[in-house]
Design a protein around this nucleic acid. Structure first.
Lengths: 182, 182
DNA sequence: AGAATATCTTTAGACAAGCTAACTATTAGA
DNA sequence: TCTAATAGTTAGCTTGTCTAAAGATATTCT
């Protein structure tokens, strides 16, 4: 393979301008690199794939001031409520999350991340995110427009035969941490 | 959320030129869409995540005229040889692959895809790939350069603390299908 | 208020897929 | 030839998922 050379990339036959297929290859390469990185992070935290996803989801929700319920995890992760219950057990056991009484519905259990989990995850993922930001910030306006066009086309390509139409998910509601008891 | 509108995308405050953070959001959105698509394909084929990856790897290798051994799957997928053995059992049982005597080393088993698996997988994934190609082909040269620059930056961002250096994998060798059908 | 109903979570039992370790068969080397 | 290394298989265990049923708390209706 090695189309990579210390001084930069080259595409077949010494071209330095990428063709369509080269972009798709780069896309694949990115995906692979990201997968590895996530696997490494996961490994270093001794976590499994879905637990990691769950934790990311939890932190994201928390930053928006939301308190997700177990049900929300089930929907987000595509696993059963029963499995979520056990998953949250693991997260709590390892000190990443805590169960609290849900502010808006006392039948539910609200899940909040611990401070520890926040710093721990940020330690690995946040640095990467910042590098990405830095990198993207060096792009000119025209370049950003081109990239957006590309990404939108990619999204359309994979979504097309996904579902005919599914505006979907009208019932997350997680209750906005304040006692917005409806 | 809904920054999406029938006529196109808009980024916060009615901007129509994406900023850095918007690109990262698009990237995330793409990843999510692709994940869903793969999950759907997998579901419709009644397959497991790793089995699916294995099949993709097998088809890719086969197209290059290579005959991978089980060992190669283990390395590619990051699972143990024992697990690969069972994985290949499943692939054979379901008619996606066949074991053949490896042309160069009778300790090894060569794995080849069946015609069935090729058409089956192409039916779902190949159409998507073509849509991607079509989409990317509409980009101008300048746009392609911008996209490549972006993707390379992204790859660098996720690879940086991955491994200090790993040119790696010098021993795949898979034996070039000595009857070398290509 | 109190019973019926609905919603959310937990527990129990079964299954799938991964791992390590031990075993067989083949190849390479001293 | 005898020994070491390599490829794959099998056995036993662990983990994470699922479904079904039970437990706990709210909400609704009379």
């Amino acid at each position: 393979m090695s189309r990579y050379q210390a001084s930069g990339y080259w595409y077949g036959e010494g071209r330095s301008v990428p063709e369509a297929v080269d972009l798709l290859n780069l896309m694949r390469k990115y995906r692979e690199a990201e997968r590895k990185m996530r696997a490494a992070t996961r490994g270093s935290m001794g976590m499994n794939e879905t637990d990691m996803s769950a934790l990311r989801f939890l932190l994201a929700a928390h930053r928006k001031g939301l308190v997700p319920r177990q049900r929300d995890f089930a929907e987000e992760l595509g696993i059963s409520n029963a499995s979520v219950s056990v998953l949250i057990d693991r997260l709590c056991r390892d000190g990443y999350a805590e169960r609290i009484v849900h502010p808006a519905d006392r039948r539910s259990v609200g899940i909040v991340p611990t401070d520890y989990s926040d710093t721990d995850v940020r330690g690995t993922l946040h640095r990467m995110h910042e590098r990405m930001m830095d990198a993207v910030c060096t792009l000119s306006e025209a370049e950003r427009v081109a990239v957006a066009k590309f990404l939108k086309a990619m999204i359309r390509s994979v979504e097309i035969e996904d579902e005919p139409s599914q505006p979907s998910r009208g019932k997350s509601q997680m209750a906005e941490s304040t006692a917005s008891s409806r």
